Amino acid sequence: MRSVQPEVRDGVVSRWSGQRERRRVEFVDAALAAIAEHGPQTSTEQIAVYVGVTRTKLYRHFTCAADLQRAIAQRASEMMIAELAPVWQPHGSMGQIIEAGVGAHVRFLVGHRNLYRYLARCSLAEDSDAHDAITDIKFSIGTQLGQVFGVYVGAFGVEADTELSAMSIVGMVETAAGHWLDNPGGTSQERLIDDLVRWIWLLIDDTLRSGGVYLAREEPLSEPEEIARTVEQYRDPGRIAPA
């Protein structure tokens, strides 16, 4: 019998690994479609049917239901982070950046409410192996937002725990928007966004003022390097109109 050379075996393993990853991506795509159609109570069996395979075959690519849920949560996190591009590449005034970010976040939840509720249901499951997807998504967004805050707050020369501030903002937006999805009352989507933008600005404005920096909400935001170079101009309380 001919022996299989190590490089040949490695090539086979590599091809199988690549195929397995592609199939996992396909299954997650199908899972998102199934959840959009069947709602937050979508089961693993329904996802398998939507893909056109048996549950057993599905589990050749996912070790268990929790593994599938983690993959779905990871995709949801990537989708939301992509929607929040205006925050990662700030342009315009602080008010415009906040409004763009909050608006994108709320519209994402509205457009993917079944997915959001599915992940929330998985996070609240009694099964100890259940994945806390919502917390992971908030952590991913909060971490990235904290890095953006760090750059600008640092440029202004203000000492603050930007990661904690970012996590607070993300938590507030997610909690308020999640509650609103199920209990909108008389609050419109536009009103929700306006309120969240105002609350977030108050937090940011207070953080800046505590460090002796005065910035108008609709004032165009310069690049961090320019802010650091001209930071003294932001230390005059008289440069902006009283709130």
Rank of each mutant, 00 (worst) to 15 (best):
V4Q: 13
P6N: 11
R9Q: 14
D10S: 15
G11E: 10
V12F: 15
V13E: 10
S14I: 05
W16L: 15
G18H: 06
D29H: 07
L32C: 08
A34Q: 03
A36S: 12
Q41D: 08
T42V: 05
T44H: 03
G52A: 07
T54Y: 11
R55A: 05
L58S: 01
F62I: 03
F62Q: 00
A66S: 15
A73D: 02
Q74I: 08
S77D: 09
M79Y: 09
I81S: 13
L84K: 00
A85F: 07
W88T: 06
G95C: 14
I98P: 01
E99G: 07
A100L: 10
A100F: 07
G101A: 06
G103I: 04
V106I: 11
R107Q: 08
F108M: 09
G111M: 09
R113T: 06
L119W: 02
S123R: 03
E126F: 06
D127S: 12
T135L: 15
F139P: 08
I141K: 01
T143L: 12
V148G: 02
F156E: 05
D161Q: 10
E163S: 12
L164W: 05
A166Q: 02
S168M: 14
I169C: 04
G171W: 00
T175N: 05
H179M: 07
E190A: 15
R198T: 12
R198V: 11
W199C: 15
L203R: 10
S210C: 06
G211I: 02
V213Q: 01
V213L: 03
A216Y: 06
V231I: 12
V231E: 03
E232D: 14
P242T: 01
